[in-house]
Nucleic acid binder design. Sequence first.
DNA 1: ATCATGACCATCC
DNA 2: AGGATGGCCATGA
Length: 108
Amino acid sequence: METDFYEMVYELVRLIPRGRVSSYGAIAKSLGAGGTARMVGYAMRHAGTAYPPVPAHRVVNSSGLLTGKFHFDPPEAMEERLAAEGVSVKDNKVVDFKKVHWDPRKEL
DNA sequence: ATCATGACCATCC
DNA sequence: AGGATGGCCATGA
């Protein structure tokens, strides 16, 4: 079973608009804590077992780097999905990260 | 309660 | 530029 923390993360991630990406740190801050960025990633690891599914591929690190792509199955799925949604990925990082970055604190 | 781990982040060298 | 270090905090044994 998932904890409340995970659920909060999942909900927020599910709110990410199509064709946009967010960062672990931004999500963590939106949850009220600044140092829980790692927990967001930890939650993402459980995201695969969560339902409804969480678009974890829309979550990257502060640099727009696809740090967790190797946790996907298969790893290529991450950039493929992003590309399919209009987000270009180059060398494991999001192109025009600044433009497609979705900050929950601002957008919400 | 303590220890070790982690899909991070910022800083320092 | 790229590697190493410390800090942040939740989870599980």
